[in-house]
Design a protein around this nucleic acid. Structure first.
Lengths: 183, 183
DNA sequence: GATAATATCAAACACTTTGTTCGTTATCAA
DNA sequence: TTGATAACGAACAAAGTGTTTGATATTATC
């Protein structure tokens, strides 16, 4: 990719992220992004068709980074035994989030969290599907999966809202207790 | 309140709700609401300052109706024994939601759930606080309460997304299993 | 280093939506 | 019946969107 393209792309991402920390997605205008990123109007629209696409691409960028190790680390293992690592995996994921504090905080802690959450959950589904033992079998599979994903996403949102002051290990432990996960 | 005011207010609510079933809140224009409700532009703005306020007022209207029985039915009972009714209370709440299908579906089933969810959770906090036994004590109270409220809200969202085809009793039962609630 | 390709820019553009204003008409409560 | 007021509709300024244009600057490549 052309250096110029990379440069403007990251400039736009940085600007957008900063703005997201301050105000809601809906109340951010393209003009504000342009001013913050020092990028021309037509340049912006040659990169992204709409503001929504910008958000989507930024989300996937962040998650591809955060989940890159998570999703592929154990895919070659025996499936029935892979449950053993759920606590470690969750802890690891939380540490990743903490490392990306700068990027994630703006998007998630702001009022735009719902949009970000939608993407987050998509990745979580893939993760939890690797741990069949975390799901109770006396409840419909879809219901149980939705519960795991939804409640974990809520826990993370709460954690971030609390400025991530609780240690990742503790968050993971508390969460696993609440979903009744037996090691 | 003047009959004329009531008339236009409900006309706007009805029109707005219908539009919410079809498209996202952000993509609904005031003009569309006016056309659907057969209401003049200036009339709309004499009732609601913005589109957001319209949504907010509609949400509180719905919840005040749905939770009116829920929240006050057992407040005079003995607190330590009130846990016995959680399953019934949840079931009852789900039936209420189903009765308000027409109102709730549009707001929540669409992608506009954000604001609606926020209000919903506020009411849920009050509800779950009446059932101390539903909360594990080996996990920080705030963490546990967030888990109960968040996961229940997610379950309801899922349920509505599935067109409420699962019977309320079953939803309540499955949910209580997942949070490890012992009768 | 020269060159062809192309990314960026600024400015102007048509278009949509918002929220306000105002004079007129219709409806209500008393 | 009458005074109050709600609804109407048309026009308005303001703000934002997404596109187009031609000039300028930067890049990859030869």
């Amino acid at each position: 990719m052309d250096r110029r393209q990379k440069k403007t792309r990251t400039a736009i991402f940085r600007a957008f992220n900063k703005l997201l920390e301050e105000k809601h997605f809906n109340n951010i205008t393209v003009q504000e992004i342009l001013d913050e990123a020092n990028v021309g109007r037509s340049t912006f629209y040659s990169h992204f068709e709409t503001k929504e696409e910008l958000l989507r691409e930024m989300c996937t960028d962040i998650f591809n980074h955060i989940f890159s190790h998570e999703l592929h680390s154990e895919t070659s293992h025996d499936f029935s035994l892979s449950d053993h690592g759920l606590q470690e995996k969750i802890t690891h994921l939380l540490y990743h989030l903490k490392d990306n504090k700068g990027n994630v905080l703006g998007v998630l802690s702001g009022e735009s969290g719902e949009l970000f959450m939608r993407y987050f959950k998509e990745y979580l589904i893939t993760m939890f599907e690797q741990y069949p033992k975390s799901m109770r079998k006396d409840v419909p599979r879809e219901f149980a999966l939705n519960h795991l994903v939804g409640s974990f996403a809520e826990a993370v949102k709460w954690w971030i809202g609390e400025k991530m002051k609780m240690p990742p290990e503790e968050v993971a432990e508390n969460y696993l207790k609440l979903i009744g996960y037996k090691i």
